[in-house]
Design a protein around this nucleic acid. Structure first.
Lengths: 149, 149
DNA sequence: TTTGGTGCAAAGGCTTTGCAGAAAG
DNA sequence: CTTTCTGCAAAGCCTTTGCACCAAA
């Protein structure tokens, strides 16, 4: 693990990072708990929450507040945008270079005297499956369309 | 109030809409409760929550999940972007036409086979006050920098 | 009169925390 | 040995809900 954060390398932390990096689905804390528990049956939910918090505080993962009640986590390396299905709640990543003209246009340093450090973009719509009417309702979808930013 | 929604015009609803429209600060549900209570002392917090929910469901207001634990509400008419101070939690609106080249670039109909209905943009940084070191910590700031999308 | 809304209080869901013991450095 | 982390369980915070009464249409 990275040094200079005062963070120790624990088995719990390593596995949480590893599972999050492997995941393509931006899991919630309790989804993380289930994933990690398969490899570390005695881990507690509190430990999962604490680690997700610490890791996002030091920038090693990202905490998302897009679409829904629960927070989601993203094991990303660099900046990217999100693509969210408002019906099933699925979230996909969009690398910045998928749309260079946009990240360029948005990369301004100052707006209304605010010093801009970061910008975020999300696209909302229907994924192919949901568009074709194959409604795939999961736990994820509760409130999926209800949030904004 | 608008017809066709099955919504009745109640004094509570009217005042909630009115206070939210007047507000420039994207209040939380309990901030709304305090505001409305000055005009309608017997209103209950539950009623405020129920109305904010219903009104955002039918598109008359917008529910925000930017920056922090609590949801915030926006009495806006049309689409716009947000400008968030990561230090004090202040949120400002940015009309789309403040940056036409951006909304144009982002207005694509299809990405990765998703049918795009909407896009959202937020800029994060420091507002003038916070940049100048006049740290203005409010209840709002708890977790202000911790969320993403 | 009918149906949706309100106030109140209790219940719920997700997240955070206090504590004592375990583990990393 | 010291400091951080963990598991467990309790507490916390924000939000939702059941119910009986009230009010809009």
């Amino acid at each position: 693990m990275r040094s200079g954060h005062g963070l120790r390398t624990t088995r719990q932390r390593e596995i949480i990072m590893d599972e999050l990096r492997k995941s393509r689905s931006h899991p919630t804390a309790d989804e993380m708990y289930e994933m990690v528990r398969r490899r570390l049956p005695r881990i507690s939910l509190g430990t999962v929450y604490r680690n997700l918090e610490v890791l996002s505080d030091c920038g090693m993962i990202r905490k998302l507040e897009i679409g829904g009640t629960q927070k989601r986590f993203d094991g990303i390396a660099g900046a990217h945008y999100h693509l969210l299905c408002t019906r099933c709640g699925r979230i996909e990543d969009l690398p910045l270079d998928a749309m260079p003209e946009i990240s360029k246009a948005l990369g301004r340093k100052k707006i209304r005297d605010f010093e801009i450090r970061e910008h975020r973009v999300a696209f909302l719509g229907l994924c192919p499956k949901c568009r074709d009417g194959k409604r795939r309702l999961t736990a994820v979808s509760r409130g999926a369309t209800k949030g904004g930013m």
